[in-house]
């Protein structure tokens, strides 16, 4: 099983990020990818991205360009359910690269 890493952020790194992370973990698991994830506050993204070197970043709040080539996705579809299938696939494809 391939291992990949995701950093998932929301306002206080408690609720929304957890919801997003779990759904992404399940989606990847079904496709034989073991997703390791960490939730954080939006403000912690730059330092944690440096440390953890995730394959992908998903954030509920807007994120400034980190200039480090790590793809960043808006995680809101995971919470509203609107457009979630498309977003999951986009993230999955980005993780595979």
């Amino acid at each position: 099983m391939m291992k990949k890493k995701a950093l998932v952020a929301c306002g206080c790194g408690v609720a929304s990020s957890t919801i997003v992370a779990k759904k992404l973990e399940d989606y990847c698991g079904e496709r034989d990818i073991k997703l390791e994830w960490r939730i954080c506050k939006a403000a912690e993204i730059p330092s944690l991205a440096d440390m953890m070197k995730p394959d992908v970043i998903i954030s509920i709040t807007a994120v400034a360009d980190l200039g480090n080539q790590i793809p960043v996705f808006d995680g809101k579809p995971f919470l509203t359910g609107i457009g979630v299938a498309k977003r999951l696939e986009e993230i999955y494809q980005a993780i595979l690269k």
Partner: peptide, 23 residues
């Protein structure tokens, strides 16, 4: 309104809540 003491402990609960409100 969510009171969460440890998000890691309540992953399932939060995930399921979102499944309910999306339905």
């Amino acid at each position: 309104m969510l009171a969460i003491d440890d998000p890691k402990k309540h992953i399932e609960m939060l995930s399921k809540l979102s499944i309910i409100f999306q339905d």
